[in-house]
Amino acid sequence: MNFKLKIWRQADAKSKGKFVDYELNDVPAEASFLEMLDILNETLVRKGEDPVSFDHDCREGICGACGLYINGHPHGNFKNTTTCQLHMRKFRDGETITVEPWRAKPFPVIKDLMVDRSALDAIIQAGGFVSCHTGGVPDANSILVNKKDADLAMDAASCIGCGACVATCKNASAMLFVSAKVSQFALLPQGQVEARERVQKMVRKMDELGFGNCSNTYACQAECPKSISVTNIARMNRQYLSARLADPLQED
């Protein structure tokens, strides 16, 4: 298959970027999108040009490292698929493919298609965990968990932290990401102990980092490669508002 590629090139965080056009021929239809970029990079290296940088690691759709904005959609316009699991046979032969990095103020570009998503780590550090120490915990079966709740928690916990929700949201809001973590713990008795503090701390951190406000377009849910539901956002709103009323965080 042959493709015309329009790829965002930017030497580093401080440089100005621009689109560069490439033509790539004889790409096998079975190749994944990232393998197609590997082929491009191989030709660039042979020509003595700078290869395109992009984040990627497991290449099986679970680590969340890859994330390219392809033809106007994060991970391309295909349901439940990460960029690494997207195959070239899904494109038309001869198609022009535009590849951009995630764009959001909290996600500055590092180089080419690679962005800094450490803001997501910072949100987790604000409270996205259960504060138990290693050791000294009760037997695993001593606290029973309703199966439905456990399943819902698992649905939320499937988030791979790729940032597609932020990338696609017209407001660059991280609500789906944050609410997935808040929900996972809110649904489990182990997480409920500090649920009120957690949700307030995480929302506060999210706001501080400059993410936008949710306007309930649900584009995040539509583009999430793991189909995380926006009902998690409703749960977080509910949790946040009641926590705010009943037990506001002490100003520190």
Partner: peptide, 11 residues
């Protein structure tokens, strides 16, 4: 929200 999108817009 407009500010959060950043300066560089999607093509």
């Amino acid at each position: 929200n407009w500010r959060a999108r950043g300066k560089q817009r999607y093509a």
